[in-house]
Nucleic acid binder design. Structure first.
Length: 339
DNA sequence: GAGGCGTGGGG
DNA sequence: TCCCCAAGCCT
């Protein structure tokens, strides 16, 4: 805790009333200024998202948070609406086979999230009477709910004071306070401490602060080309003050072409398209003299996309084994289907 | 702690 | 075109 004050606002804006401090407890310091600036900006500019609406439910917030893990808002929106219409409560989802969740997940990516959401619904029904628990600790115990999602649901669904740290907030803090272009590749303890120290003491303000920092990172303080002209706190930004230095490291892109992940995705696309189990041999390679397509055109097309990858039999075997192990697929009598 | 895990849009 | 990356989680 011997680091310099995290807020590096221009000296002219530092006005410390007698007896005030520079902690997150509020007051008239530079940090309190940031709190109000961002909260005001959020109240004016926040996107009108359904999981933020007045009629939102904790379940809807949880579903949105899980869907938004590594998936952009624009792609989540239609799927989230379908889920809420079909499964307005955890019990509604828990009553269906997990494969239905996977199918309804569509192409959001990382389908294990759908499986975990289904499992979370079952836990909510079995252990919490069908209602979302309202503490970070209990939320954190749900499948697929990590520290970020637990804090986000606690804050945005239940109005609790929680330290929310996602990639947007990390980037905003790194620039605004750290003077760096990007946060570290992985979340550090120092970042978590900084985020906790920045959180307003006032509960309502803390919720607004979390939401505002996330929103700022999502629509203004973006990773690629930040729109600093639209930033309400650009004047206090340490990164700008430092002359916008470039990142000190080059992010490593994820391999994709030729990976198991690519094959898994293509196999899952077949299973989602299929209303009936699909013979495993059909995944291996095109069947030249086959009597006909195994099912509708969508399945044939998905199989064609899988075959176009030119995957070797060993890798396909490995990919399918992985899907079976993850519970994303079930094999019976030589045929594959969703669970 | 590093790596695995989908998908599609935008620079 | 290619490459990054988008409200992470789990092992």
């Amino acid at each position: 805790m011997s680091r310099k004050a995290p807020v590096t606002a221009p000296a002219a804006t530092r006005r410390r009333a007698p007896g005030s401090d520079e902690t997150a407890s509020g007051g008239t310091g530079a940090l309190a200024h940031l709190h109000t600036e961002l909260a005001d900006w959020f109240s004016r500019e926040a996107r009108d998202l359904p999981w933020r609406a007045g009629d939102r439910t904790p379940w809807g917030v949880l579903v949105s948070e899980v869907m938004l893990q590594q998936t952009p808002v624009v792609r989540v929106l239609p799927v989230w609406r379908e889920w809420m219409e079909r499964w307005p409560n955890p019990a509604d989802l828990a009553a269906e086979p997990s494969g239905e969740a996977v199918r309804a997940w569509g192409r959001l990516g990382y389908p294990r999230r759908a499986l975990r959401l289904h499992a979370a619904a079952a836990v909510i029904v079995a252990e919490h009477g069908g209602e979302l628990p309202d503490t970070e600790e209990a939320l954190r115990a749900l499948p697929g709910v990590g520290s970020y999602t637990a804090a986000a649901v606690a804050a945005f669904a239940f109005g609790r004071r929680a330290t929310v740290v996602d990639t947007n907030i990390r980037r905003v803090h790194a620039r605004l306070l750290g003077g760096e272009a990007l946060p570290a590749p992985a979340l550090t303890a120092a970042e978590q401490r900084r985020a906790a120290a920045l959180l307003p003491e006032d509960t309502a303000l803390s919720v607004a602060w979390n939401a505002a920092a996330m929103e700022l990172g999502a629509v203004v303080c973006t990773a690629r080309s930040p729109r600093c002209a639209a930033c309400p706190v650009a004047a206090e930004c340490a990164w700008r003050a430092a002359g916008e230095p470039p990142p000190t490291y080059t992010p490593r892109g994820q391999a994709w072409h030729g990976t198991d992940r690519q094959v898994r995705g293509a196999v899952m696309a077949v299973l989602r398209a299929a209303e009936h189990p699909v013979a495993r041999v059909l995944f291996e390679a095109p069947v030249p003299g086959a009597a006909g397509p195994p099912a509708g055109g969508a399945v044939t097309a998905a199989l064609g996309r899988l075959h176009a990858l030119g995957t070797g039999p060993d890798q396909l075997e490995r990919a399918v084994a992985g899907l079976l192990a993850d519970g994303l697929a079930v094999e019976e009598a030589g045929r594959l289907r969703l669970p």
